[in-house]
Amino acid sequence: MAEQVALSRTQVCGILREELFQGDAFHQSDTHIFIIMGASGDLAKKKIYPTIWWLFRDGLLPENTFIVGYARSRLTVADIRKQSEPFFKATPEEKLKLEDFFARNSYVAGQYDDAASYQRLNSHMNALHLGSQANRLFYLALPPTVYEAVTKNIHESCMSQIGWNRIIVEKPFGRDLQSSDRLSNHISSLFREDQIYRIDHYLGKEMVQNLMVLRFANRIFGPIWNRDNIACVILTFKEPFGTEGRGGYFDEFGIIRDVMQNHLLQMLCLVAMEKPASTNSDDVRDEKVKVLKCISEVQANNVVLGQYVGNPDGEGEATKGYLDDPTVPRGSTTATFAAVVLYVENERWDGVPFILRCGKALNERKAEVRLQFHDVAGDIFHQQCKRNELVIRVQPNEAVYTKMMTKKPGMFFNPEESELDLTYGNRYKNVKLPDAYERLILDVFCGSQMHFVRSDELREAWRIFTPLLHQIELEKPKPIPYIYGSRGPTEADELMKRVGFQYEGTYKWVNP
């Protein structure tokens, strides 16, 4: 592979701008107003304001973009700056750019259920340069409990009458099928589907988006991507930290609602779906819905739930269990780990287990898709061969690698495990991989909904998990304890083995 010439960040961002501006969906010269509902909250200060700053800094926003914060707290732009700027990672050389960014910011205080507050917000936006005809993007960085009041008031008082209007809704989209349907029906009564952007930030990850290209742009994968060759698929999300004093919020939802029903299920769809007619948003989402419709409700015998306990040999936070978090209700049975087996009941995947695993306070930070292939028929190497695996590593250190057998150097035919490896950090030294939120917010500006969740996708996802969630809430089974920093409950490994996964433990990928 030829040595790549190092590029400056300015040059890299210039390439990104060229890609972005050559499309006809990006209205570079139009006025846009980006409204952050819930501007005083954690999500706004840690993710949304920093993301908008990065896009502005790199010249990736339309030229005439204004940012308006809205929340109940009586704040000023200076207050917003004070709480969000520490997350910007701005350099001293960017000081003038930073001043320009905050000059485009404003803030309006108001209630979430008060019509007069929204009329005041609308008047404020109209007073901005060309504000009355601007395109408006409303980001709901809010708890779902206020979605209905907020969307109703936005629709009645704050819509642009000339430009387009788009609304970005953060997960969780309800707690179960019934609450999700209620919320979807409410929002759909106010906005068209092409105006609604239900954001799952995992769909903005580079390697998640790469799944489609790997599958449908490489001839070698087509013939082997089926039940005849693939023994099982494992989708993993692991965090090495616990709730760390923020367990009160987590306890309301648990690990299945927080990660599995959305992030992991979306990745499953991209692995299992048929080739779409095109890369058009609805063509892709149509195929994802077909996959979900082929999955039956989760069966309790295919589920393992766990909850982390303190590690007596650990240090600091590792010595504390979930129930030691003062914000967690006493005696909570909320799971911090889950392993679930699903089956896609169609011709391509009949009988292939899709194993979804996620948890907190585990032994490493990792998100990946792992396809394990069947054993080689007619073994001539005296059971020395391990199964081939194709691994798409989402985070950290984005990579695609194939675990395969090669001859060990020497005189004899002794096979050993090795890999074919594409590590993004080595291959793409001159490429700026956008943060997931950067990519998705740019998608909203461009009107691309491919990486957002459609209402029928959402409904099918909740259909699969709601009976299990209701059973857990009714019966309150005690989750299996696992030690902070471990791989999780051993019962999860036993479940995976029972459905056909072979864990060798003899080879570990190392970032080159």
Rank of each mutant, 00 (worst) to 15 (best):
A6Q: 14
A6P: 13
T10V: 11
Q11G: 12
V12F: 15
C13S: 12
G14W: 11
I15N: 08
R17W: 08
R17M: 12
E18K: 15
L20Y: 12
F21P: 09
G23Y: 12
D24C: 11
A25V: 12
F26V: 15
F26Q: 13
Q28V: 10
I33A: 09
I33Q: 07
F34M: 13
F34D: 04
F34S: 05
I36M: 03
I36Q: 02
M37V: 10
M37C: 14
S40F: 03
D42N: 05
D42K: 02
L43T: 02
A44D: 00
K45F: 06
K45W: 05
K46G: 01
I48K: 00
I48G: 05
I48V: 09
I48W: 02
I48L: 05
T51R: 06
I52N: 02
D58S: 08
G59S: 07
G59V: 01
L60Y: 07
P62S: 08
P62I: 03
T65W: 07
T65Y: 06
F66P: 06
F66W: 12
V68R: 03
G69R: 02
Y70H: 09
A71R: 00
R74V: 14
T76K: 13
T76G: 09
D79K: 08
I80Y: 06
A90S: 07
A90E: 06
A90L: 10
A90G: 08
K95V: 09
K95H: 13
K97W: 03
L98M: 11
L98Y: 06
D100S: 15
A103Y: 10
A103C: 11
R104T: 05
Y107P: 02
Q111F: 11
Q111R: 13
Y112V: 03
D113F: 10
A115R: 12
S117V: 09
Q119L: 11
Q119C: 15
L121N: 03
N122M: 13
S123C: 09
H124W: 11
H124M: 10
M125F: 13
N126C: 13
H129D: 13
H129F: 13
L130H: 12
S132Y: 14
S132C: 15
R136N: 09
R136W: 06
L137D: 04
F138K: 03
Y139D: 05
L140M: 15
A141K: 04
A141Q: 08
L142Y: 03
P143E: 04
P144H: 02
P144N: 03
Y147H: 01
A149L: 14
A149W: 12
V150W: 03
N153F: 11
I154P: 06
I154W: 02
H155F: 11
S157E: 11
M159R: 13
S160R: 09
Q161F: 13
I162E: 14
I162G: 12
G163M: 06
G163A: 11
N165L: 09
R166I: 02
I168S: 07
V169D: 01
R175D: 08
D176L: 00
L177H: 05
Q178F: 13
Q178N: 14
S180C: 05
D181H: 07
N185K: 14
I187H: 08
S188Q: 09
S189C: 10
F191W: 10
R192I: 09
R192D: 13
D194E: 14
Q195H: 08
Y197T: 01
R198G: 00
R198K: 03
D200I: 01
Y202M: 00
L203H: 00
K205Q: 00
E206D: 06
L211H: 04
M212W: 07
M212D: 02
M212H: 00
V213Y: 09
L214T: 06
R215H: 00
R215P: 02
A217I: 01
N218I: 00
N218E: 03
N218M: 03
R219P: 10
I220A: 10
F221E: 00
G222P: 11
P223H: 10
I224D: 06
I224Q: 11
I224S: 10
W225M: 05
R227L: 07
D228Q: 13
N229G: 06
N229Y: 05
N229I: 05
I230M: 07
I230C: 07
A231W: 00
C232W: 01
C232H: 07
I234W: 04
I234M: 15
L235C: 12
F237H: 09
K238T: 01
K238E: 00
P240R: 07
P240D: 14
P240E: 11
F241N: 07
F241I: 12
G242E: 05
T243H: 02
G245I: 01
R246P: 02
R246S: 00
G248N: 06
G248D: 00
F250G: 01
F250L: 01
D251V: 01
D251M: 00
D251L: 01
D251G: 05
G254V: 01
